[in-house]
Amino acid sequence: MRVFATGQGRKTDDTDAHSIALVGVRMGGLRSVVHDQTLEVLRLLVDRRRRLGEDHTRMVCQLHALLLEIVPGGAKKDLSAAQARKILTGVRPKDPVGRTRKRVAMELVVDLERIYVRKKAANKELVELIKTTGTTLLGLHGIGPSGAARLLVEVGDITRFPTRGHFASWNGTAPIDASSGDNARHRLSRGGNRHINHVLHMMAVVQLRTRTTQGRAYYDRKVAAGKRPNEAMRCLKRRLSDIVYRTMLDDIVTTSATGPGGHRGASHISSAAGSQPQTDTSDQSLPGPVTHHHRTPIKTPA
Rank of each mutant, 00 (worst) to 15 (best):
V155Q: 01
Y219K: 02
A149H: 01
Q278W: 09
D177T: 02
M27Y: 07
H293T: 09
S270C: 07
A82Y: 04
R150G: 05
K11P: 00
I70R: 00
L22V: 13
R295K: 11
H35S: 08
R114K: 12
S241E: 03
R187T: 15
K120R: 12
A178G: 04
E54V: 14
L42S: 07
A174H: 06
P145T: 03
T159Q: 14
R103N: 06
T210M: 02
S169K: 13
S80G: 14
G191L: 06
F161N: 09
N193L: 04
R114L: 15
N183G: 02
R209V: 04
A184G: 01
R99E: 07
K131Q: 09
T212R: 11
R238I: 04
I87C: 01
T135E: 00
G259I: 07
V97A: 11
T6M: 06
V253C: 06
A232P: 14
A75K: 05
R211Q: 10
V23M: 13
P162M: 11
R246Y: 00
E54D: 14
R103C: 06
K124Q: 14
R264Q: 11
S282A: 13
K77V: 11
A17Y: 03
M59H: 15
R31G: 02
H18R: 12
R234G: 12
P297C: 02
R234I: 03
T136H: 11
N171P: 03
T210N: 12
H186M: 04
L151G: 00
P260M: 01
T12G: 01
P93F: 02
F167K: 01
I87V: 15
D36G: 09
G73F: 08
Q8M: 00
S19M: 02
N193I: 10
R31P: 03
T210K: 11
K131A: 10
L63I: 07
G165E: 07
G142E: 01
G24M: 13
A17W: 03
T15K: 10
I130L: 13
D250F: 01
V290F: 06
T254S: 08
S180M: 10
R101V: 05
K94R: 12
